[in-house]
Design a protein around this nucleic acid. Structure first.
Length: 418
DNA sequence: TCTGGGGTCCTAGGACCC
DNA sequence: TCTGGGGTCCTAGGACCC
């Protein structure tokens, strides 16, 4: 049996852990740059605030109701996620971390799954302050569905199990196609056109029809819903690509601040690579105007560079990122966003080097190690490359950032006795 | 009139996920 | 005026090879 454990309203719940006065209140967390809504407490959902709503559209509502708004604090969420995943690892034989707030669990060999699940949900809440829900079923796709029910109906008390044919049929009949894991907006529209509205309707189609209309991925989903596992536990190796990109806080035309931003993105990719002990073989830089500003002249360009040898050296990544940026940059546009993607990622050792490479890689490895050590101790960006700059004209908006309660000594919660 | 068949690799784009 | 960021997988089509 597979389990899917998901943190409820994760970002909003993280904000509550260290600020209990938010309990019972509507809480909303905004995306980077304070752009749109990406997490809502149940109270905020009840007010009808949709997911993805642009922040400026909330203004009117905010004048009437007191909604607590936060900029996203990924340092806090990342640390809280780490705590939850750590507890899970100790409780089950195998876990696959699927996203910042979700993990698949291998539950084979565990007897009394329901009691076990309830205990797990209670334990995580007690240990981290984060409320979670668990879905259990013979396949991952069904476990996802079970998780939805666990969240939706309070009667389940956080744990829903699909372990008989009756329960499977009942669940599929209650699940609309669009809510199936792997069926997005486009496919939903197409399926609805064919009169398929529930997951049950979908499973009643023949395998060949599904294959023909939805390809191999659709076929896998179809089989999974029948209770035949096609998706296994995925051993969390390192990522295949790493991307660092941001929208700028203001429109940028001049190349200098953009170059500064791109240097920072490249350096951040380097940090992420070193943290997972791997090297990238190629790198892609992209630059774009604001696609939502339809009246403005639009421009998008990207370029791929093959690096002379696999690397995770920030200085080297910055060097090539800046070169490429000069190629794709054109003046006369108002830029909104840029990004650096490193790919073809290989493990740190054994390393295939290039015969004609004359960079002193041993030396730069030590430099990076030193920089990482200093920054671990004195804070991110304490020590950096000059090209990363100090202006941060490109920096994002996050006016409502909560403190880094768990990762910064100066932000640690103070409790005073009255 | 009439022009093959089989393969690889790469890239772009689409669709999905959180 | 104002709409995020970071991933995965699959497929079609072009370029190239013999």
């Amino acid at each position: 049996m597979y389990g899917l454990l998901d943190c409820n309203n994760f970002y909003a719940s993280c904000e509550r852990v260290f600020n209990p006065s938010l309990n019972g209140e509507p809480v909303v967390v905004l995306s980077n740059n304070d752009g749109c809504v990406i997490s809502r407490s149940n109270e905020a959902k009840a007010l009808g605030i949709p997911m993805g709503e642009p922040a400026y559209k909330l203004k009117e509502l905010l004048e009437k109701v007191d909604v607590h708004i936060f900029s996203s604090n990924y340092v806090l969420y990342g640390d809280m996620s780490h705590r939850v995943m750590g507890m899970l690892t100790e409780m089950v034989p195998e876990i696959e971390i699927y996203s910042i707030d979700e993990a698949f669990l291998m539950l084979d060999g565990i007897t009394g799954v329901e009691t076990f699940g309830r205990k797990m949900v209670r334990k995580i809440y007690k240990g981290t302050g984060i409320p979670v829900s668990l879905g259990v079923a013979p396949t991952k796709t069904l476990a996802k569905a079970a998780n939805r029910f666990a969240k939706k109906y309070p009667g389940y008390k956080g744990v829903c199990i699909i372990d008989t044919e009756d329960k499977r049929e009942k669940a599929l009949k209650l699940l609309s196609v669009g809510d199936i894991w792997g069926i997005g907006r486009r496919l939903t529209k197409r399926l609805n056109y064919y009169g398929i509205n529930t997951a049950w309707d979908f499973t009643q189609r023949t395998k060949s029809w599904v294959r023909h209309n939805m390809g191999v991925t659709g076929e896998r989903t179809w089989l999974e819903l029948q209770g035949k596992p096609c998706l296994e536990m995925y051993k969390s190796l390192s990522n295949k690509t790493i991307c660092t990109s941001r929208s700028f806080g203001e429109r940028l035309t001049d190349i200098n601040p953009i170059s500064e931003a791109v240097s920072n993105f490249a350096a951040m990719c380097g940090e992420k690579l070193r943290r997972q002990h791997s090297y990238a073989t190629s790198m892609l830089i992209f630059l774009q105007t604001n696609p939502n500003a339809t009246l403005q002249p639009q421009y998008y360009n990207q370029q791929l560079v093959q690096l002379p040898a696999p690397t995770n050296d920030s200085a080297e990544l910055i060097h090539y990122a800046r070169l490429v940026l000069c190629n794709i940059y054109k003046d006369c546009y108002q830029y909104k966003k840029a990004g650096v993607i490193v790919q073809d990622i290989v493990p740190e050792r054994p390393l295939q080097t290039c015969l004609f490479d004359n960079r002193d890689r041993i030396k730069f490895e030590k430099v990076m190690e030193t920089i990482d050590n200093v920054n671990a101790r004195y804070g991110r960006h304490h020590l950096k490359m000059a090209s990363q700059g100090f202006d941060r004209k490109w920096k994002l908006k996050n006016e409502k950032l909560s403190p880094s309660y768990t990762t910064s000594l100066k932000d640690i919660l103070k409790i005073s006795a009255k």
